[in-house]
Amino acid sequence: MPLIEARDLRRDFVVHRRRGRLRRERDVVTAVSDVSFTVEPGEMVGYIGPNGAGKSTTIKMLTGILVPTSGHLRVAGVDPSRRRTDLARRMGVVFGQRTGLWWDLPLRDSFDLLARINDLPAARYAENLERFTSLLDLTALLDTPVRQLSLGQRMRGDITAALLHDPDVLYLDEPTIGLDVVSKARLRSFLRELNRERGTTLVLTTHDLGDIEALCDRVMVVDHGSLAFDGRLNDLRAHAGATRTLVVDLAEPGPAVEVEGAQVVRVEGPRQWLSFPADASAAPLVAALAARYPVADLSLQEPDIEQVISRLYSTARPG
């Protein structure tokens, strides 16, 4: 049974716009437009899209904070908006830009409060606290008030807080925003390990495509409230019509080469850049080249994911 099942999920907002001094106009904005997907237990899914694409709205619906306007939604077999508190025992949520810890309290007190809120047996609380604080390097900071923590420390604290009750699914909304390179790397390896050891399902929204490449085997790209893509990261490249590039160094400068299935996009002395579809194999191309031209050296450039995504947005735009 899928852990998350969304069918035609939709959320409209009514906004009032000021027109002149007194008049206000009522407008309906669709933040999430008839989105369907399923997530299996143990998956690590990246949910990406530009600002205002509807990522946070979706997360809020999945967690039961926001009631969908229409559509069918089941998480762990229940409707999140009706069974919010039951579901809360099975999920952890981290909103990257806001802390779920208590600003004025030492880290430990925040954890204690959450353990009480979640009715955790003392032994399991102690065990999880010990485990996560040592894995995330927080042990020395337990008596520090949250407001004195650095952004990275606080994020680690928030993740510990979200995991204390052994949730089946962890939602992470922009978990690496504002973190330095080292903190990011550490966090990513922790999340990979968590998924491998406990089978925790991970749904993360992010701006940082590095998070996706490091963590997710599956990507959902949302744009203007609709799913523009849902599939494996590799397939995303092909889907978006992305291209790979073969860089060829000829023995001497010459005119642009001509081979089937590739196009020269740039020539610089003896070096030429050939572009070909990302899902095509490079082998026949290399063979054809070597048969007809004096090739001194070859290298292959994979499309980077930023380019893939931006291509996807530009093709997915309606109209």
Partner: peptide
């Protein structure tokens, strides 16, 4: 305003109690 309410809504205790 600070988003604390959203954090409360994802916890298994009635909002009013929190």
């Amino acid at each position: 305003r600070t988003g604390t309410l959203d954090q409360m809504l994802v916890r298994p205790v009635p909002l009013l109690v929190q």
